[in-house]
């Protein structure tokens, strides 16, 4: 697999990141090197091997559904870059025609 400008731009959009000009060329190079490195895994035969997904033997710890006091509005909003007394503020999403 060879990473090109189009792949980088597609993946960057999925990851909500931007790479322009020099940054784009650098990430293309880095990703190609990293992919070349991880493609070593293709040497191993994994036919019939189930993917290992869960690292724990535990299953479904159920607990009583008890109401705990949540964080206050003030505590939740204290780290927001833009907010008023009740809400996070975001840029306008729907434009007026």
């Amino acid at each position: 697999m060879k990473i090109d400008s189009k792949t980088v731009q597609d993946v960057a959009h999925l990851a909500r990141l931007e790479f322009e000009a020099e940054g784009e060329q650098k990430i293309i190079n880095d990703m190609n090197r990293m992919l070349g490195f991880v493609e070593k895994l293709n040497e191993l035969n994994t036919d019939g091997i189930e993917p290992l997904i869960y690292m724990t033997e535990e299953t479904n710890h159920l607990r009583e559904d008890v109401v705990h006091p949540p964080l206050s509005h003030k505590e939740v909003l204290q780290n927001a870059p833009k907010h008023d007394s009740d809400y996070f503020k975001v840029p306008k999403v729907v434009e007026k025609k």
Partner: peptide
Amino acid sequence: MLGTFVLSAGYYDAYYSKGQKVRRL
């Protein structure tokens, strides 16, 4: 970026799923 790529449609099986199988080995 690498993580988004290996999880993306079309590459998931070849990279991510493969990695999980090797992890079991």
